[in-house]
């Protein structure tokens, strides 16, 4: 600043008018950005608080029975979350069982097997699977996948397992409509694949290539390099990526609502219709009043805490590996 005033003392020169930045703008900018950053914390706290407060009447009315009860009776105002919780967990579990091998296969293909020119288009295609809206997965599931699944999997399978112990219960469908927990799990699997695959791919790419080269140098095959070098190196972060996929699968709403069948009772068979927390909220919320409304928000509260724990673990595992 002082240099500028010195220059103005040159005889004959017109004084230079310098725009001096206002200190207030600096302060306002700093505080505004700090406030915006704090808002992220406020949002999460707000979501948590609104779920707990909104769901409180249901928790108070039913106590722990809200979680363990299987009754969902709008006539007598009795609500229990158990079938929805089981539905949520089982669809997410099926999605992981199918989706994780798929994702790992894709990550290995993209990092180790694909020819150079082919990598980018394939990676883009896999990532576009994540861009397809949830409701479109629901449409595809309901109108394309469900009829095929009913005709070629559900009906033949039911005929085979009928009367057998255990599998006759778990895999038998009373109404082979194609809708059900298992179908929802399959659709969810394709929805979580791009997330798990792209994180795993990033992790595999970060592993120093010296490690791979030395393994190949002592005569290892590609499979042995993947199994004994890459997977142990990326291990924890792959689990983190899987947990992230689990978080997605637990809270996915529209696609599941289309194909899960929306049955309120619990069935022993994974091929029968069921419901998840998210699908039940989506289905009933707009017509709900009073205690039913509170019970639905209480369901949301349970979903929030389950996904919160899963996502915290996921982020901690993914972050731990990123450091080196």
């Amino acid at each position: 600043m002082t240099a500028a005033t010195d220059m103005t003392s040159i005889p004959g020169a017109t004084p230079i008018v310098r725009k001096t930045p206002k200190a207030t703008f600096d302060l306002v900018f700093r505080n505004a950005s700090f406030g915006a950053a704090l808002l992220v914390l406020v949002l999460l706290a707000g979501i948590m608080a609104s779920m707990v407060i909104g769901g409180w009447p249901a928790f108070r009315e039913f106590g722990l029975g809200f979680i363990t009860s299987s009754v969902w009776d709008t006539q007598n105002d009795q609500y229990g979350a158990w079938p929805a919780i089981v539905g949520t967990l089982s669809t997410a579990l099926i999605a992981l069982v199918i989706g994780v091998p798929l994702s790992l296969g894709i990550a290995v293909y993209l990092t180790q097997l694909a020819p150079g020119w082919f990598k980018k288009p394939v990676a883009t295609a896999v990532e576009l699977l994540a861009a397809v809206p949830s409701i479109i997965y629901g449409m595809w599931g309901l109108f394309v996948f469900v009829p095929l699944f009913a005709a070629y999997v559900q009906i033949p399978l039911s005929n085979i397992v009928e009367g057998l112990p255990i599998v006759g219960t778990v895999l038998y469908s009373r109404s082979p409509s194609g809708l059900g927990i298992f179908t929802a799990g399959i659709i969810l699997a394709f929805m979580i694949v791009p997330f798990i695959a792209s994180i795993t791919r990033d992790m595999l790419e970060q592993i120093p290539s010296v490690l791979r080269e030395s393994a190949y140098g002592i005569g290892a095959t590609t499979w042995e390099v993947v199994r004994h070098v890459l997977v142990p190196q990326a291990g924890v972060s792959i689990i983190g990526a899987v947990m992230l996929g689990l978080g997605r699968a637990l809270g996915e709403t529209m696609a599941v609502t289309f194909v899960v069948g929306n049955a309120n009772r619990l069935s022993a068979s994974i091929l029968d219709p069921g419901s998840t927390i998210a699908s039940r909220i989506a289905n009933e919320f707009n017509e709900a009043m009073g205690l039913q409304l509170n019970s639905l928000i209480a369901l949301g509260c349970i979903l929030f805490f389950v996904t919160f724990v899963v996502l915290v673990i996921a982020r901690l595992l993914v972050a731990r590996v990123k450091r080196y």
């Binding site: 992230l244 809270g251 919160f308 996921a314 982020r315």
Partner: peptide, 13 residues
């Protein structure tokens, strides 16, 4: 965490 929070919960909020 907010990045992967279920969108239906944001609707409820």
């Amino acid at each position: 965490i907010l990045l992967s929070a279920p969108s239906i919960l944001i609707g409820l909020f």
